[in-house]
Structure formats: C-alpha cells, structure tokens
Design a protein around this nucleic acid. Structure first.
Lengths: 324, 324
DNA sequence: TTGTAGGCGTTATCAT
DNA sequence: ATGATAACGCCTACAA
C-alpha cells in the first residue's frame, strides 16, 4: 500500500506538502503540485478511506439499506440515485443485511447518511444510529424524515381523467390484499376516485393480481376477460402488471384503446418501451431520485428538512385512452 | 460519537484497559471487564471501523462488485453469500458502480477481499487493486482466481440422461444468440451431448428464447408447439424459462411427462416451488456459495488457491421424465 | 511556499 | 491486572 509518505520521499518534499498538493490546495506551487500528482499516479496511489474519514469525520459515502434484493421494484431507483450521488462525488454502498445489522455496519463505517428502503410500507422499530437516516416509503407517522409518493392521489387522478372522457366502467388491477401498505394506498385511491367522480366502485371493478409480476397481470386479466361486463378502461397498478395486461388483450384480439383504454402506474423510462404508447400516472423516476438525493445532501449538511416529503404524481394521457 | 475514552472516563480506568475489555482479553479482571462492557452498552458504544481498520489493516468486510442490479439472476447467490459471511463475522458491502469505480471504492475502504460478478461472461480489463479479487463467471484464461460452474457439462449430462431412457427428439430452449458467454456454454454443451449420445442436433432442436425471463420461455415454447415434429423432451436453460415452458404446456393440455419430459437448469431452492417436481441439472446453490465463501476466506489468508475452480453439476431426475 | 506537529479512535507493545 | 505510549494514514493549524 502506497501512502503519502512514499510519495513525499519520491518527490523530495514533506508529506504535508503532498497532502496539500493532492487536495489541490492553492498553498502549493503549480510545478511542485504537478510533479507530486504525477508521482502519485505513477505509484498508483489510493487515498486510505479509513485514515481520511478518521480525521475528517466524513466519508463521502452514503449507505443504502436494502434488505430484499430479490425485489426488482426499486432497482431503477437505486441505479439512478447511485449515478446522481456519484456525480456529486459521493460513493454509494448497499447492504442487504437485516435493517439493524445494516445500520450498525454503516455506523461503524461512519457513512455520512443512510437511505433506508421501506419496502413493506412501514418500519417497526426505531433503530439507534449516529448517522442521519432518510427513509423512502409510506410516510405515516414516520420515525425518520421520509420521502414518499402520493400513490392514493395518483389513482384518483387516473380515475378522474377517465371519468372526464366518459368512462364509467373502470377497473383497477393490482394487489388488493391489503398486505402491502404501498399497494393498499393505490386501492384506496382508486376507490376514493370512483366514489368522487363516479357513483361507486362495483364489486368486480377490482381485479386481484396474485403478485406484482407481469405474469400475474396476464393471468388476472385473462380471468377477468372470461367474466361478463367487460370494463371500458383499466388502471394498472404497476409497469409489470401492465405488460401482462397488454399481452392478455393482444391474445384476445382486443384493441387498445378501441375496446379498452388503459392507464398504468409507474412513471419510469421503461414505460416507453412498449410497442404502443401507454398513458402513465405517477411521479417521474428522476423526480423521486432527485428529491431523495437532495434530501440526503440536506441532512448531511444538518439542514432542517420536512419530516415528510410527499411527491405529487403527474398524469400523461395519450392515445391509449379514448372518449366514450 | 462515543469512544473508548468516554467509556474509560465513565469507568475510571485507562482507555487501553477498555480496549482490552471490549475485545474480551484475558488480561483484564472479570469484574472490571463486566463493568466496562455494561457502561459501553449503556452509552451505546459503536466501534469506529475507520480507526480499527487503520491500525489493524483489516476491515472484516467483503466488497461485492455488482454492476447490474436489474438482473435478478444472481440475487439468490448474493443473499446466500451474505448470510454465510455474516455468520463468519464478515460484513458484505455491495457496489453497483462501474467495475473500476467499485474496485477503487473498495480499495479505499480497505475491504479484505473483493468478489466480482462477471455477468456477461468475460472481463475485459485488468483492474489495479491492492485488495485480492475473486471472480465468479466464465473461467477462460481468467485474470483473477475464478469460481465457475461447468454449464457445458450440465447440458451434456442432461442430454445423456434423456438419451439413456430412450429420447431421441430432444430440444434445448434458451438464449442461442451467442452474445452471452455463460448462455453460449449451455448451447455448446447441448450440441456436444447430442453428437455424443445421439446422432446429431436437428435444426429445430434449438428453441430460441428472446430473453431469459419466464415470458420469453412461454412465447418460445408456444411458437415451437405450433410447429411440427414435437420434441419428446425439453432441456430448459434456466429456472425462469422453465416456468414459461410449463405454462405453455398447461395451456396446450400437454402432460409432463406423458407428452413431454423436461429437465431444467438452475439448481436453486425455488425449483421446488412448482406444482409438480421438475428434474434439475446444475450445481446446487449452496455449493456455489460455499465455494465462493471459502475461496474468499482463503485469499484473505493469502493461501494459494487454484486459479480456476470449476464446479461440476449434478442431475436430479424425477417423474418429470419418463422412458420412451 | 514548504515543513512541523498534534490529533482523529483504535490496537498492541511495553512498563508499572 | 492495569496504564502509558507508539503507531496506523491522513488533515490542518501553525511555524519557519
């Protein structure tokens, strides 16, 4: 392992000069600086994070608690956040350990902040941590400052938009079991919308998907199509479900939008990869990640941030929906 | 942040005694030790990883380079490895940055070893690193010690087993584009097996799946079933594809194994979640992870390890295959 | 403009 | 059995 002392020796200067040079301090003459930097590169110098954060109390690192790798739902989010933080000179480290273990690890490593993915929609415990924590998920009486998306509003918005162009028989497809709070919010929003903008939710307006994968959407939709009273519009709870729904409609030779209009939740770039445009409702991915990144930087700087940052969804209607 | 000095003050001892007590050294009297530990807990003491690894040159941490979170293929592997390392008192940290950036980060943090997921099947560059690197993926002329699975052998084994019970019309379903070396190995193995144990590969013995997800398997299989000369046995390239194949067969009212026998690659626990047993070929997940964990520990201890550790697949035949 | 010295939290080697 | 002290690699006043 090559240290600044090695560089100092090679450059014939003191190691504090090296330290300054490498941090591009104006206190060192350009030629000296240049020489030192060159030598550092030649030697393949890597600053020692341990030593650095020991003295500076800063690691320029963000820890992400991510207990369930298997769920790809948030992968796009993390990829994005990672990129943004990198451009800000922060390193992102992930831990897939249990929440408490992960938080412990990040405390020992003195990361500057912790981002906690609150996947199930609730956090049971308050975990002791010297490092500030930001949570992403449902913001109901949150133990930590929380960034969340107003899923309820998103669904109401979708219903409203469809009602405005004459739809009455609208169905929601998604997880309606109530086990996952994040999903439950969508159901509630849908119901509220139906009550507000139309008469009420008919029983069969909820199409239960056994899971949130594409295939679940496919199966659920096929099942629904075999029953009477076909809806004129579908609101899908997620991108993957939408994929399945489209496949089911294709299989039955039903046209979007002539037979069925469709709006999908999840405002992510992948939504544009369908063979036809699909109307979208949700908070754009970049807005979510930008918000999280900024909040992270703010809590690092010990700025006051609101305890709940609730993002408002947008709707992008296009030719996947027609008036009726 | 509470340090050992704070504890020392509170306990009325020197901080070096505290250090010993916390590391459970025999050099400190039991009562003193107990008192110190209690105080440490009360104060919520967390050892500082930076200071510790600075002096001990050890961080008890493994860095995992994982450039593509979106691919769930290795999620089960990582989860397992993480658990095993945790039980050995090692912490696992993931980075989804580009390979070179990730390796840099881990070098700065002085992790004890780096595990690199070689997802595409090849590593282009040799990345400078003071920390030893272990790679998981194709071991062809590897730049780093590598753990890999003999996918080729797995496919040959599958063909052999089917040939032995009388099958002649065997088809392989998977990625046959040759773009992914890991997948290509399977194709080669299948072809070799067909040549060795039967006459040859017929053209339509390869069923091309556009991707590796369940739905790809479903589509590809449906397409194949619409063509003449139905195979009597299918060898599937992955767990997800198998899910799709089964769905397609169900849809066409074809019975496993009466109409078609089936063997699937991927020896993972999830294989047991089908509604019927499916024959499996591959290296059991735990063996892969055990091997990786052990190799990691070995390179940390600077033990010599073979440059390539190629794992030999097993086959578990069951009632999803019948004689013909 | 450069060098010296103190300290970050911890471990390990000495003394006491 | 306990305490003092040097060292790990780096940063930052401060001195020269």
């Amino acid at each position: 392992m090559v240290t600044i002392k090695d560089i100092a020796k090679a450059a014939g200067v003191s190691y504090s000069t090296v330290s300054k040079a490498l941090r591009d301090s104006p206190l060192v003459k350009p030629p000296t600086k240049k020489r030192i930097v060159t030598i550092a590169n030649d030697l393949g110098y890597q600053p020692n994070a341990a030593a650095r954060s020991l003295v500076s109390k800063k690691s320029n690192t963000i820890g992400v608690v991510w207990p369930t790798v298997e769920r790809t739902a948030h992968a796009a989010l993390i990829t994005n956040i990672n990129e943004q933080l990198e451009s800000l000179d922060y390193t992102t480290l992930l831990s897939i350990n249990k929440i408490d273990a992960a938080i412990n690890t990040f405390n020992r490593f003195q990361v500057d902040a912790i981002l906690m993915f609150n996947e199930k929609g609730y956090i049971e415990n308050h975990y002791p941590s010297n490092v500030p924590i930001l949570s992403y998920g449902i913001a109901k009486d949150p133990l930590y400052p929380t960034v969340d998306v107003n899923r309820r509003e998103a669904m109401k918005l979708a219903v409203k938009s469809l009602a405005e162009i004459g739809h009455k028989n609208i169905a929601f497809i998604g997880d309606i079991t109530g086990k996952d709070q994040l999903q439950e919010e969508k159901v509630v929003g849908f119901k509220e919308g139906m009550k507000e903008y139309l008469q009420d939710v008919q029983k069969d307006s909820l199409i239960p998907a056994p899971g949130l994968e594409m295939y679940d959407g496919y199966l659920a939709m096929i099942k629904r199509l075999n029953e009477p009273n076909r809806p004129t519009a579908i609101i899908s709870g997620s991108y993957d479900l939408t994929k399945g729904v489209i496949r089911a409609l294709n299989e039955r030779n039903l046209s979007i939008p002539n037979d069925i209009s469709i709006i999908s939740y999840d405002n992510i770039p992948q939504m544009n990869t369908f063979d036809r445009p699909i109307s979208i409702v949700g908070v754009p991915n970049e807005i979510i990640t930008k918000t999280i990144t900024n909040a992270l930087l703010d809590i690092i700087d010990k700025k006051e941030i609101p305890n709940e940052i609730i993002l408002t969804p947008e709707i992008k209607m296009n030719e996947s929906c027609i008036s009726i």
